[in-house]
Amino acid sequence: MINVALPKGRLGEKVYATFEKAGFECPSIKEVNRKLVFENAEKGVRYFWVKPSDVSIYVERGAADIGVCGKDILAEYEPNVYELLDLKTGVCRMAVAARKEFFDDRNSTLKVATKFVNIAKNYYAQKGREIDVIHLNGSIELAPILGLSDVIVDIVETGATLKENDLEVVETIMPISARLIANKASFQFKTKEIEKLVASVSALAEQEKI
């Protein structure tokens, strides 16, 4: 039995549809109820929905054998897991954005508002730029508008929210997409089952580009 942690929301549903097509369906997952765990003993899979940012924790701690989460979460928390597949869905990018008139004055410390503190710190450390990180949990775009920060580091999908708030992308840090991850210990003891699932999903993802 493989335990699979899926991220709640649109991405998770899309990924489940791929798993289903790949032959790892679990019909009970589509029933409308408050159940959290769904199992198909015949196919050897058990799914559960968790908050997207918690998927890597479930997998790293072995509560789930495999899981699907965004590269942003993996880059931010650096969990000790295998990253077996790029599902090429949920595609977006991690970027630095600022007000259109922003000029980076290197004489002063750059104030950076973000949910992704480690990504921001690592990125600017590589550039040798001194920063003051302001950790926010939401509405990051508001920070430069109100003068709380000079720039923001956040996920950009279409750029529409930025545009509506007179912000623009200044630099791209990294491309983001959904990744299939596995617990390192589980992989040793369920190698064949995980390999089979990864091969089926990979073939399908390649064929359909999800």
Binding site: E60, R61, N183, A185, S186, Q188, F189
Partner: peptide, 9 residues
Amino acid sequence: GFVGGVPES
């Protein structure tokens, strides 16, 4: 080394 039931090496 890994043993069954422990999620890390």
